[in-house]
Nucleic acid binder design. Structure first.
Lengths: 215, 215
DNA sequence: GATGGTTAGATAGTGACACTCTCCAAGGAA
DNA sequence: TTCCTTGGAGAGTGTCACTATCTAACCATC
């Protein structure tokens, strides 16, 4: 199909598709002539994923490009490809090692991780994980505001996260081919985030009503 | 204290504080003379909250202003104030009623909500909740990508969210005064979001290693 | 009582980001 | 032949969260 048809079928403006092509988020179409190219259903599928990552998952364009590149890196095994794709998502920077709040946050976080028996291998230390750094930054900010976020407070959330991860991987394992699994893992990781947060807010409203509203 | 001291104690650039004052995120200081104002510890606390909302919670400045305004609206009761504050956070718009994906998403979401027995009162219908709309948008995007997100898939996530909400409200109820509780609710809702998402990604990495990596 | 350094407040500018517009030459259709 | 469309490239747009500059007033010091 032509770019115009790709635009119509995906609902994405033609100029935006050109921009994604330029940025390398979409592979170029098959060049038919010097001024025309042909796009297939794989392009349509990829375009939908890109849109969902950017608009629903709020992933920056540059990060989305890295994520998609990891999806197609055949030199990695399954687990590693998942890791690389998720690692390409935006994360917090390394904290200031002299900040006492950051030190306390690290202690709490490590206690929770160890308490749940989570293990890190030699090639995959916890410090190299972007999620770990993002977690440190958030806990540091909470501590600085004076909110409780020691290991006792974090543990229930970590247990809920562990449950969620089991559900996530069950969904991923429904797919048969490794390629589908990796794409599903990225899509489900990123696109379920607003789902989880919205469900939490709805649940909070229920719980708040249950506790604070006299019927 | 002077603006310069407020800046030093909070770690926020003086120009940024001026910007927040201009935007109404911080109340003005007590004017001492025509060119000097005095700020107290309440300003410092508020400034830290603003920073955390914007930088950790990624709340837009305009939304943060609305959230803070709701914190101080004495005309509302406790539960309503929580609702208004959380509702001021950014949410997805109303979906296109003709979109079949959106219709299917609404059916799934409603089934999950009803399945958990969540109730909505007359003054608080589910359709008026921003979290509900954001949830619909995310589920619609997943469905459009071809990922499973029926009631069966969403239910485990909703149960995890319900658990999380109980933990959240337990933390909120540690505070004694209503004012502290409302501020804590906002801070914990927004600032625990990156905590939850980071913990989920760490848990996913563990679960992925457990399933896919042969020791 | 001149002087140098701050201060609050206003205005304009910056850089990042995600598009979006405009133009161009080459194809294809009427 | 004429007109419209296409893919591609560069420049422009709007938004957002700051940030730099300026100005008049103020305070402390000499």
């Amino acid at each position: 199909m032509r770019l115009a048809e790709l635009s119509e079928r995906s609902g994405v403006a033609a100029a935006t598709i050109k921009y994604y092509l330029r940025e390398g988020l979409l592979p170029p179409g098959d060049r038919v002539t010097a001024t025309q190219a042909d796009y297939g259903t794989a392009h349509l599928q990829r375009l939908k994923l890109v849109r969902a990552l950017i608009q629903v998952g709020r992933v920056p364009v540059a990060a989305a490009k890295d994520v998609l590149a990891a999806l197609e890196d055949d030199s990695l095994d399954h687990h590693a490809r998942l890791g690389v794709a998720v690692e390409a998502l935006p994360n917090a920077p390394e904290p200031d090692p002299d900040d006492p709040y950051a030190q306390a946050a690290r202690a709490s976080v490590d206690a929770v991780i160890d308490g749940l028996g989570w293990q890190y291998g030699g090639s995959d230390p916890r410090g190299s994980s972007g999620a770990y750094l993002t977690l440190l930054a958030a806990v540091t900010a909470l501590a600085r505001l004076g909110y409780p976020c020691g290991a006792e407070e974090l543990a229930p959330y970590a247990r809920a996260a562990a449950q969620t991860a089991v559900t996530d991987l069950d969904l991923v394992e429904r797919y048969e081919s490794p390629a589908e699994q990796v794409e599903a893992a990225v899509a489900l990781t990123v696109l379920y985030e607003p789902v989880l947060l919205s469900l939490r807010r709805l649940a909070q409203a229920q719980e708040s009503a249950r506790r604070f509203v006299r019927p």
